[in-house]
């Protein structure tokens, strides 16, 4: 099967890959580019642990073909922190204990980041609705919601 040469921006840096059409974006990110913050869970677009930002929208990278990211902008959890330190969303998850085992956390962070870009001053109901595509098998939702609320406040003050 003919491979496709693709290039896209990953966390602000240009990357290239040679992919089969059936290669999923999450596989390119984890195995080809070796950024393993983005996780694989259910692989059938239910659990949300593979969530990344594609062209400014949250998507499940297990259900997007790598060829579909060609020419696009991708953000993963590795792109959140800067030289100055953790992103406000990450800091809020630390302070509010927004994680237990941590498996769902990278996707929670990337989703929370995009959700707060779209809705900087959300109500609790809006947060629950906006984060509803991400499962936490530890069921630690309460502190995840608190962390998103806290991050919203921090980002508004910044």
């Amino acid at each position: 099967m003919a491979k496709h040469h693709i290039s896209f921006n990953l966390n602000g840096k240009p990357v290239e890959a040679l992919v089969e059409p059936r290669e999923l974006l999450v596989h390119t990110i984890r195995e080809n580019i070796q950024l393993t913050g983005t996780h694989i869970g259910c692989e059938t677009s239910h659990c949300g642990v593979c969530t990344v930002d594609l062209n400014g929208k949250s998507v499940k990278s297990c259900t997007v073909l790598a060829v579909q990211a060609d020419g696009g902008d991708v953000l993963t959890v590795e792109g959140l922190a800067t030289a100055e330190g953790l992103h406000a969303v990450q800091q809020a998850f630390v302070e509010e204990h927004g994680l237990q085992c941590g498996f769902c956390t990278p996707a929670m962070l990337v989703r929370a980041y995009r959700f707060l870009q779209d809705n900087p001053d959300p109500s609790e109901d809006e947060i629950r609705w906006g984060m509803s595509g991400n499962l936490c098998r530890c069921t630690g939702y309460q502190n995840i919601i608190k962390a998103v609320q806290s991050a919203a406040k921090k980002l508004q003050q910044a």
Binding site: S45, G48, T51, K57, S58, V59, K60, T63, V64, R111, F115, W129, G130, M131, S132, G133
Partner: peptide
């Protein structure tokens, strides 16, 4: 329909 990420695609 589904969830926020799925609704984006």
């Amino acid at each position: 329909v589904a969830d926020p990420q799925v609704r984006n695609r």
